[in-house]
């Protein structure tokens, strides 16, 4: 029999565990945005070396599953004498992995802009920094928003993978809960509900942002 009280009771500790899920996802996307922007800039630069580096970065990180990246990163840190908390390792790995996707999101948006947009600015004598800051980036950001929100939602779900390095986020917490209560269905269903609520909120945030920046 499905027990509603057990279901409701499991919501509380899982909500508490959700703070780690959010920390990893938001930290990961923030780091991913910074690195991804740099990688994208490298990929669009005139320097062949930088372009090759960006291409390697993207293809390597997209080509290896996040779970494997996590394990490799986590177990390689002690080898180079670094003792970082599991949480930091998790955010860094998630962020680096996200950077590959985010740099491709930027690249797609920038390439999708008609060449005439920048040309009109260049033709009146605008400096390259202003062309980027005032003409290209605002439009690229608007165009990228749906894809970026998509990426953030994917990260929330992918953060369940960091349970393998011992972080008590929603998934790991529900595993522990299920083991002590012997009511896996109720517990995992509660976990599913919490993921769903988080992601519905993110989707709503995305729609609001899109609406605000719509032209």
């Amino acid at each position: 029999m499905f027990s509603i009280p057990v279901f409701l009771e499991s919501l509380v500790p899982l909500f508490w565990a959700a703070r780690f899920t959010l920390l990893i996802s938001v930290g990961g996307i923030a780091l991913g945005l910074v690195i991804g922007t740099l990688v994208c800039a490298a990929g669009l630069s005139p320097s062949r070396a930088l372009r090759n580096f960006a291409a390697l970065w993207v293809s390597f990180l997209r080509g290896v599953p996040l779970l494997v990246q996590l394990l490799v990163f986590y177990y390689s840190l002690p080898l180079i004498g670094l003792d970082v908390p599991a949480m930091v390792a998790a955010i860094v790995t998630v962020g680096i992995c996200a950077s590959a996707y985010i740099s491709e999101i930027w690249r797609g948006a920038i390439n999708a802009l008609p060449r005439g947009q920048a040309e009109a600015a260049v033709a009146i004598g605008m400096a390259p920094t202003d062309v980027w800051r005032r003409v290209i980036l605002p439009q690229a950001v608007t165009m990228s928003l749906p894809a970026l929100i998509n990426e953030l939602i994917l990260l929330v779900k992918a953060s369940s993978l960091v349970s393998v390095v011992g972080i008590l986020e929603i998934t790991r917490a529900s595993q522990a809960q299920a083991a002590t209560t012997f009511r896996p269905l109720e517990v995992y269903l509660a976990a599913a509900c919490i993921y769903l609520v988080i992601n519905l909120c993110l989707a709503a945030l995305g729609r609001w942002l899109e609406h605000r920046t719509a032209v």
Partner: peptide, 23 residues
């Protein structure tokens, strides 16, 4: 680039596709 920009300041250009900034 600076010298070129300075010369472009006094040359207006109108494009086939208008190229207005939509934002």
């Amino acid at each position: 680039g600076r010298a070129l920009r300075e010369m472009r300041r006094s040359i207006g250009m109108v494009f086939q596709q208008f190229n207005l900034w939509p934002h």
